[in-house]
């Protein structure tokens, strides 16, 4: 019997994976439109950082000094270096930030940025321009969404609950 013609058929089996692999090399970080970074000066207080992150609904803040990126402050840092050790919110960010974070540049290929995220186990990667000025943040969530978009049929066609079936056939 002939192989049935499948919807979307005609593409060789590996086409999507190869396309993704190619796109990861060709697309640059800017393709994902990294979210504009929340930034604060290293002398700003943790209290101000909390307010900024709450207002911006973001768990990650870039710390600058003279406009250049000098550190990263995340909700993890807030928990482990401030709250859990009983420190006050009225201390400068430079005392509790992660200094000299790993970064990627706007025009670098995505696969490089993703590799850096994975090697360091980071959820956020600050994106800087060629002068070291922060222009955005790339999050693991954005990367996963980008990859998922290459496989819309298998991911987005999943029913909300695959164990759930209608009690009666439609129209019965």
């Amino acid at each position: 019997m002939d192989q049935p013609v499948l919807p979307g058929g005609g593409r060789p089996p590996d086409a999507v994976a190869r396309e993704l692999s190619r796109n990861l090399r060709v697309d640059s970080v800017s393709r994902l439109g990294p979210t504009p970074a929340l930034t604060l000066d290293a002398d700003a207080l943790v209290r101000a950082a909390v307010e900024t992150m709450r207002a911006g609904r973001s768990g990650c803040l870039l710390v600058t000094s003279g406009g250049r990126l000098v550190g990263l402050f995340t909700e993890r840092d807030l928990l482990t270096r401030v709250l859990a050790v009983g420190r006050s919110l009225d201390i400068p960010l430079r005392e509790v930030m992660t200094p000299s974070p790993t970064t990627a540049e706007w025009h670098e290929p995505l696969r490089i940025a993703i590799r850096r995220m994975q090697e360091g186990g980071y959820r956020h990667l600050p994106i800087v321009d060629s002068t070291g000025r922060p222009v955005g943040v790339l999050s693991a969530r954005q990367v996963v969404h980008y990859i998922v978009e290459h496989f819309p049929a298998v991911v987005f066609n999943q029913p909300p609950d695959p164990r759930q079936f209608p009690e009666a056939p439609e129209g019965a």
């Binding site: 919807p7 979307g8 593409r11 086409a15 999507v16 994976a17 993704l20 298998v154 066609n157």
Partner: peptide, 16 residues
Amino acid sequence: TLDLPQPQGPVETSLM
């Protein structure tokens, strides 16, 4: 059943 998404390649096969 032909309307069900068919996995193509290693990533989709793993996903499904």
